[in-house]
């Protein structure tokens, strides 16, 4: 047990020590939210044809993007947390860990928990953008966000560890992650509403774990009950499979199940690592 804690603690310690990483982590969300988001918002509302009156006058693209950006940040941080596993292999520290009497399972769990915690911190840091984009976030919302972020981060960290356990170099890891990150992001509804997609793309969206993760954040951040059906439709907030609109609880179960599968696979794969 203490071993899990020690592995976790090391990740947290290093996260807070690495200032440049902390500051750098704002770069991507800032670009998407402020530059891309603000730039696109005019075009978006005119495309939706509801700039003056009509049912869609409340549509604000930057606001729409905000939960997606939280999702993206949690996702990026969680998956890149596994990079430390590959780095530890390269710089030798992994040997110190692997020759200790700790079980491989504890090490893997500690790593996943460390990555998840760091991802939650990063996700929470995104709340500094709140005053600039006009969404209102209550204390209750934050309390709801934290466990949700953790659940998502846990799934993605496990996924990252699974990939990291099969690769030996940081370059290799970064390559694989880059190839995975963008399609998963684009097909998650984080950056634009997923409406009127071609059938094949719709399938990809539905099998993307990130879709459900991002949708959970949207459901927490937006007050959907107060929205008109047209707005809900335009913002893609009616995620459904086979005409069944998926509830928050179902999404928790889906992401939870995905977590379980990934953490088992990752732990198994990591256990076969030779020092």
């Amino acid at each position: 047990m203490e071993g899990i804690f020690a592995i976790w603690q090391r990740d947290i310690l290093k996260f807070f020590r690495d200032r440049s990483r902390l500051i750098g982590s704002f770069a991507m969300p800032f670009m998407f939210l402020i530059l891309f988001g603000s730039g696109m918002s005019g075009a978006m509302s005119s495309m939706l044809g509801g700039s003056e009156a009509g049912a869609l006058r409340d549509f604000d693209f930057v606001e729409f993007m905000f939960p997606g950006i939280i999702g993206m940040t949690v996702f990026n941080t969680a998956i890149f947390s596994a990079l430390s596993v590959v780095q530890d292999k390269e710089f030798g520290y992994m040997r110190e860990i692997l020759v200790s009497p700790m079980s491989r399972v504890s090490i893997a769990i500690g790593k996943v928990l460390g990555g998840s915690t760091v991802a939650v911190f990063q996700g929470l840091l995104m709340l500094v953008f709140v005053p600039f984009i006009g969404v209102s976030i209550s204390f209750v919302t934050i309390i709801q966000l934290i466990p949700t972020m953790f659940l998502v981060a846990f799934a993605i960290s496990s996924f990252g560890l699974l990939i990291a356990s099969t690769l030996k170099t940081t370059q290799g890891f970064q390559m694989v992650i880059q190839v995975l990150i963008f399609p998963m992001l684009f097909l998650s509804g984080a950056l634009f509403p997923l409406n009127g997609l071609p059938f094949w793309m719709d399938i990809l969206v539905k099998i993307n774990p990130l879709t459900y993760s991002v949708d959970m954040f949207k459901k927490i951040v937006f007050d959907i009950d107060a929205m008109t059906p047209e707005l809900i439709e335009a913002m893609g907030l009616n995620l459904s499979i086979f005409n069944h609109v998926i509830s928050f609880t179902e999404e928790v179960l889906v992401v939870g199940a995905i977590s379980l599968v990934f953490v088992i696979l990752a732990t198994y794969k990591f256990s076969t690592t030779e020092a």
Binding site: A6, Q9, R17, G92, Y93, E96, I97, P101
Partner: peptide, 21 residues
């Protein structure tokens, strides 16, 4: 070397104590 160079000597030692119970 198998030290974590981003950490202090004390942190390296403390972690080792925890790894080895």
């Amino acid at each position: 070397s198998t030290l974590d160079e981003k950490l202090t000597a004390n942190e390296n030692l403390m972690l080792h104590c925890k790894f080895y119970g």
